[in-house]
């Protein structure tokens, strides 16, 4: 019973991180049909930022100051990446260059991390103490990640259904030609979507910094888990990413707990293959996803 609770709580915590990556995928995917392979390393960069700016025993004040800073910094970086990714798509007939450019961006970030910190894994301490929940000790970053995932879910929902700019991005996802005919500047909004995905992973990486692996080679694992979360829920659906993320988190945590940590990724892979073979459109997905 106690074990199950630990798996559940920790799984939900790390699953929230996957859900956040999944949602950041969706923002970009909905506006341009692109899946950003570098999103995992962007999360790690958010964590690295926390490591660099927070002292070894941080106070709550600086934490609240640097959280938005991390989000904004990553938004700027993602905007640049988005601009570069969209560049060849504007002129060329080859519409799959993003597979390579985003993968290359991921490799570059990993390489830069390797140069600056070697293969070391950085640790960050949370200013918030862990607390007890139903007799289980819960590290604060897990709870905060879950909270952040819910906040972002709400914010994205508001943005896509209320804010004019968000409505315009939704419009692009719903009917690209009709959006252009309505005078919506698609290219700018696609870059903006990249920036928003940066806000999400930048904040997620910062908040979850104490519980994620901040290392040169951990980004790929996060991007895969985020992808699995998004696919299980249905690519493009934020609710799907939220539910899918929590599911992936709990299942992989269960696998890690039962069989050992080295099987965590293998179980996610099996999950991904199972979903793709059985129900490729996911739990909340719409069958035909459109492209750029």
């Amino acid at each position: 019973m106690q074990d199950a609770l630990i798996v559940l709580v920790h799984g939900a915590g790390i699953g929230a991180v996957f859900a956040l990556i999944g949602m950041s995928f969706n923002v970009v995917f909905n506006s341009s049909g692109i899946l950003n392979f570098a999103q995992g390393n962007m999360l790690v960069l958010g964590g690295l930022f926390a490591f660099l700016v927070l002292p070894s025993s941080p106070g709550i004040g600086p934490w609240f100051v640097f959280l938005p800073a991390s989000a904004l910094l990553m938004a700027a970086l993602l905007a640049v990446q988005g601009y570069l990714t969209l560049l060849p798509l504007r002129s060329s007939v080859e519409q799959h260059s993003w597979l390579i450019t985003t993968l290359a961006a991921s490799v570059i970030i990993g390489a830069v991390l390797l140069i600056f910190q070697g293969t070391a894994q950085q640790t960050v301490r949370s200013p918030f103490p862990s607390f007890w929940f139903l007799g289980t000790r819960v590290p604060a970053p897990y709870a905060l990640s879950l909270l952040l995932a819910l906040v972002w879910f709400g914010l994205l929902r508001w943005f896509h259904t209320r804010a004019l700019t968000g409505l315009a991005i939704s419009a692009i996802a719903q009917d690209l030609d009709a959006a252009r005919a309505a005078g919506i500047r698609v290219h700018r909004l696609q870059i903006l979507a990249f920036a928003i995905s940066g806000l999400i992973v930048g904040s997620a990486g910062f908040v979850a910094a104490p519980v994620i692996a901040i290392a040169n080679d951990s980004g790929v694992s996060y991007v895969l888990h985020g992808f699995v979360a998004a696919v299980i829920g249905g690519l493009g659906s934020d609710l799907g990413a939220l539910v899918g993320g929590l599911l992936v988190g709990m299942i992989s945590m269960y696998a890690a707990y039962t069989y050992g940590g080295e099987f965590q990724d293998a179980v996610s892979l099996a999950l991904l293959v199972a979903v793709l073979m059985g129900r490729p459109e996911g739990l909340f997905g719409r069958p035909a996803a459109r492209r750029v």
């Binding site: 259904t161 004019l164 409505l167 939704s170 719903q174 009917d175 959006a179 309505a182 919506i184 500047r185």
Partner: peptide, 22 residues
Amino acid sequence: LDGHRVFPRLTVRDNLRLGVAF
């Protein structure tokens, strides 16, 4: 465009807002 293409998952009001947005 042909085929009465509007933004299906937006409200009537939001469809109109987007028309004038620019």
